[in-house]
Computed example of a mutant assay.
Amino acid sequence: MAAAGDRMVESEDDLQDSRTSSLSDIPTAEVRETLRHLPTKRDLESLFSRFEAKFDAKFAELGADVRQLGGRVQDLEEDRDASLAHLDRLQAQINEQSRYVTDLRRSVDDLDNRGRRNNVRIRGVPESEDTEDIPLTLRTLFNALLERPPDTPILLDRAHRALRPRGAPSAPPRDIICRIHHFPLKEEIMQAARKKRSITHDGHAVEVYQDLSRFTLQARRHLKPITDVLRDRDIRYRWGYPFALTVRRDNQLMSIMEPGDVPEFIRALDLPQVEVANWHGGDLLDFPPPKPQRQKWQAVRKQKHRHPLRDEATDPGLHPSFGPARQDP
């Protein structure tokens, strides 16, 4: 054990001797020349000062670009806010004009239906190949409904087939439209037709309707899903003038006059959800999407930047490789 320790001491002594001999081989002048060319603290401070000046210039240029970009972004956001405000005004104006157009359309439709108050539409009367006597056919049909003699006079202002080309022989016959001169007589005929479960004329089943405008018929067709549900649940309804679908339940009158009334009507009657198209055009529930929200542009507070390399270089305690300041030899 002692011999091993002696050998280790001898090897360390040999290593120290070899280092001393290698350092003694370097000339003193060469060492001084090498140390003279090493950078000093002043050189490092000058170097980092130049770095700082370049960084400051770059940061200033970058800050100017950011401020310019921020100004442009702020201008764009202000233009966007102005455009949105203008769009809101236009949307409000369009909605107001849409209500005006709807009211005008309802008024025109009401006038059209009032002009048809004395009109009756008969469906199912076959068309003859020869010239047909439509007034005679209608007088016979109406007197049969009123349970009067067939030759009882009925004053008609006009009577004709629907104003469209005659269809193929296999196509259904065109409707007959007539205007009864006396309104009370027309109402008697309509009441008698409603009480009849089926109406026949010369062996053919016919139907008697109130003549209505095209817009009213279109709206009624769009509300057919709701009327089907009402019939399935034995809920009585009636059509009103101007156009309205009316139901009385629990001493409350509920009506559909506009497409927007459909959701509340369904909710009040506890009906299943059905798809009803907007007879004024477009989807029934077509709500605009919510507007995107954003934060206002805020300028970032300027902070003094710190150069870690410069601080480490100038402070000996921050970097372990730097010792105390030395002077040139």
Rank of each mutant, 00 (worst) to 15 (best):
P225N: 11
M1W: 11
K302V: 05
D110N: 14
L212Y: 02
Q93G: 04
R72H: 05
L284G: 04
G167L: 05
L146V: 05
V9I: 09
P288G: 04
D175Y: 02
G240N: 13
A244L: 08
E127M: 08
F59V: 06
F265P: 06
R99W: 03
A299C: 00
H37G: 07
R249I: 02
P288S: 06
F55S: 04
I266S: 00
L163G: 07
N143C: 10
W239I: 11
H160V: 00
D175I: 07
R294Y: 03
F265G: 08
L269Q: 09
H305D: 01
L284A: 09
E147G: 07
S24M: 05
G71M: 09
L138E: 05
Q16N: 14
D110F: 08
D81I: 02
N118I: 01
F55Q: 11
K304M: 03
S107Q: 14
D211W: 09
R19F: 00
T137Y: 01
D75R: 15
N95L: 10
L15A: 12
F48L: 07
R248H: 03
R116W: 01
A299Q: 08
Q16S: 03
D228V: 10
E207Y: 10
R301M: 02
P165N: 12
P289N: 05
I266C: 05
D88A: 12
D261P: 01
N95W: 02
P39C: 12
P149S: 14
D130A: 13
A244R: 15
P169A: 13
R106D: 00
A192Q: 07
R310K: 09
P316T: 08
S21L: 09
A85M: 14
R123S: 08
R179I: 05
H201Q: 12
R197I: 00
K296Q: 06
D261A: 03
W239L: 11
E33L: 12
T246G: 00
G5D: 15
L76C: 10
S21E: 13
D250A: 07
D13S: 15
G5W: 10
D234M: 11
D202P: 01
Q191Y: 06
N251Y: 09
A57Q: 15
T216L: 02
A4Y: 09
R105N: 12
T28D: 13
E129I: 08
T216I: 01
F215S: 14
I134D: 00
P153S: 10
G124W: 03
M254I: 10
V208I: 09
R220Q: 12
L104C: 05
R310L: 06
R116V: 03
Q97M: 13
P316W: 04
R301P: 06
R32K: 12
L309R: 08
T137W: 00
A299W: 02
H201P: 06
K58M: 01
E129L: 07
D315F: 02
K224C: 02
H319A: 01
G260W: 11
S21W: 01
F48R: 12
E127W: 04
M257P: 00
W239M: 04
A168E: 09
N113R: 13
P263F: 07
I266A: 04
R236L: 03
R67P: 01
E78M: 10
Q303T: 15
